[in-house]
Design a protein around this nucleic acid. Structure first.
Length: 586
DNA sequence: GCCGTTTTCGGCCCGACTGTTTTCAGTCG
């Protein structure tokens, strides 16, 4: 039997196995090996199936994949499942996993609930708590029962991750609120927010202050606080009205860098870092880097000698490492890069010179061409492409050939009056359901820049949609493929594409791939960026702006590109339009 | 279950906070 399992699907099977093993109480290191391989597969910029199919290559060459897990991956790729998973499901019903989503309830307690009370669902758990059966269990009590009851509605909600942009809004208001503290010396938001992940699970605030109570009281005073989850000497956790958790840590100035490093993560990056420190007789924790005293295990740093911690640079330097930008601290390749002295100089927002995907009032945008030009110049760009929808996208008032030619004539006039700025005649041409484009080639030939994208027929098979996109790539007038991954976060619509086939075609025909920075549709994420880099395909980072403010999302795209390790050279629109034109052969 | 310039065994990051304990396990990040 031949099934078609992508990396994410294979990873999901292994992750389910890990979840069930965790409740069973397996060796925690075995569990970590499973979790690591889940992450490795999700981050892998090429398909595991392709590696399996290649007799020259072996999955065990990938760090974290040994003989056993390589076999398991091969089994999942071939059959879609794993005998081990089926066995585990005989023992433990999968619904038990829903219990793990309750804050403060982990695998050990879930196992007790299942073994002693046969609880497998949130409803059964609620009934057991209300009947006070849970408080009677060993290791549980009144307080735990109440915590569980309060946590059941939270678990019932879907996983709470919010867009980075939304987290940013909340973070800015929170920072403003806390800056009023007299004792506040430094404040920073760490965690996945600082690493620039697309979505954020919680906010980690880090503060230097000599009056812990003032800062914690101030946080408790924040308008949107719904619940204080915990509060100790140095650490406090709250939940905001929308469900977002905020963790606050107060540290002394000499520990700020160590704490910032520590709470920025990622967890896996820190595991490697600490292991490296340990092998050098050092110890890193959130308080600093310490030389471990002779004959001591130094559990609380008692006699250990503090050697660094005021800044992150200091922490990394203490173990002979360069400073890692937060976006690449994901335990992917950053430590290998550092060892080889090949840490990439990541692209920055200021490197972007043009934005090649935006809409105006001619189709579904909210600003005119002139307004978009003014806004783009204000943001330091030297060229933009106007890429309104084409006629097939009638809902967006898409333009037919005639209206396009009129728009382009206007653009010619505008350009004649512009200095040091170029407006490109473009279109976001629709890739039709039956293949082909909805604007005639003789019209397309008169454009400067054409992005092609799929809007309709998204329910077709992956083969069909891939075929349509590859055909568009072969059209000599098309410059780039927009939305190449069919990826839309948090929405039901998305189309499946064989991205490897798309990339091979892009390489063959010298076409570019677009990364759309719009946070609702970051459709070429860091993993896909890394794949594009592996194929040496230039990425174009655009905003797909429908308004002036829409241009500001560019930095989201930059964050994703940075997370993939892209440099200025990997991104096409860091070039001038003149250089770009050479790249796309116009 | 993975890994190795301490390589086929014996390690595997580290601390804060909570609740149930009578010295610590569980959970979280």
């Amino acid at each position: 039997m031949i099934t078609c399992m992508n990396n994410t699907q294979i990873a999901d099977v292994i992750n389910r196995v890990a979840d069930l093993l965790e409740i069973k109480g397996t060796n925690p290191f075995r569990l970590r090996a499973y979790r690591n391989v889940v992450r490795t597969l999700r981050d892998l910029p090429e398909s595991a199936e392709a590696i399996l199919a290649d007799p020259q290559r072996d999955l065990t060459d990938i760090k974290g994949i040994g003989k056993d897990l390589a076999e398991k991956i091969a089994t999942i790729a071939a059959t879609g499942t794993l005998p081990l998973l089926e066995e585990l499901l005989q023992e433990i019903p999968e619904s038990v996993l829903s219990i793990l989503r309750i804050p403060g309830l982990g695998p050990k307690k879930a196992a007790v609930l299942y073994n002693d009370l046969k609880i497998t669902t949130l409803d059964q758990l609620q009934a057991a708590c209300e009947a006070h059966q849970v408080a009677e269990l060993k290791g549980f009590g009144e307080k735990t029962e109440q915590t569980i009851l309060a946590g059941i509605p939270l678990a019932a909600r879907a996983e709470q991750r919010i867009y980075w942009a939304k987290a940013d809004e909340i973070a800015q208001v929170l920072l403003e609120h806390l800056r009023n503290c007299k004792s506040l010396q430094q404040i920073e938001v760490a965690g996945s927010y600082r690493r620039g992940r697309e979505t954020i699970g919680d906010l980690d605030l880090l503060v230097v202050s000599d009056d812990h109570d003032e800062v914690m009281d101030r946080l408790a005073d924040f308008d949107a606080v719904e619940q204080t989850i915990g509060r100790g000497d140095t650490k406090m956790s709250i939940r905001l009205a929308g469900g977002l958790q905020v963790d606050l840590r107060v540290v002394p100035a000499e520990s700020f860098g160590a704490a910032l490093q520590y709470f920025t993560g990622s967890k896996d990056h820190n595991v490697i870092l600490r292991g490296m420190a340990k092998s050098r007789g050092l110890k890193i924790n959130e308080w600093g880097v310490f030389r471990v005293a002779e004959g001591k295990d130094g559990a609380n740093g008692g006699d250990n000698e503090y050697i660094a911690g005021r800044t992150e640079e200091e922490v990394y330097a203490a173990i002979d490492l360069p400073y890692f930008p937060p976006e690449i601290r994901e335990a992917r390749q950053e430590f290998e890069w550092a060892e080889l002295g090949m840490l990439p100089e990541l692209i920055e927002l200021g490197d972007i010179r043009g934005d090649l995907h935006m809409h105006t009032t001619a189709s579904d945008g909210r600003a005119s061409t002139l307004e978009m030009i003014a806004a783009a110049r204000q943001r330091g760009l030297t060229y933009i492409a106007i890429t309104d929808h084409s006629k097939r996208v009638s809902m967006a008032n898409g333009l037919d050939g005639e209206r396009l030619l009129e728009q382009w004539a206007e653009i010619d006039e505008i350009n004649a009056g512009l200095k040091n700025f170029t407006v490109l005649k473009g279109v976001e041409v629709d890739i039709l359901e039956k293949g082909g484009l909805d604007i005639a080639d003789d019209v397309l030939a008169r454009a400067d820049w054409i992005v092609a994208s799929v809007h309709y027929g998204q329910r077709q098979s992956s083969e069909q949609i891939t075929g349509r996109i590859v055909e568009a790539i072969r059209n000599p007038h098309v410059s780039a493929i927009a939305h190449p991954t069919g990826r839309i976060i948090n929405r039901r619509e998305r189309y499946e594409v064989d991205l490897e086939a798309v990339m091979r075609a892009a390489v063959e025909h010298g076409k570019l791939l677009e990364l759309n920075a719009n946070p609702a549709r970051l459709d070429l994420d860091d993993v896909h960026c890394a794949a594009a880099k592996r194929h040496a395909i230039p990425v174009v980072i655009n905003t797909d702006a429908h308004s002036i403010a829409g241009l500001d999302v560019m930095r989201h795209g930059i964050q994703q590109a940075r997370r993939a390790g892209l440099t200025k050279a990997d991104v096409a629109n860091t070039r001038s339009w003149k250089q770009m034109r050479k790249l796309i052969g116009r």
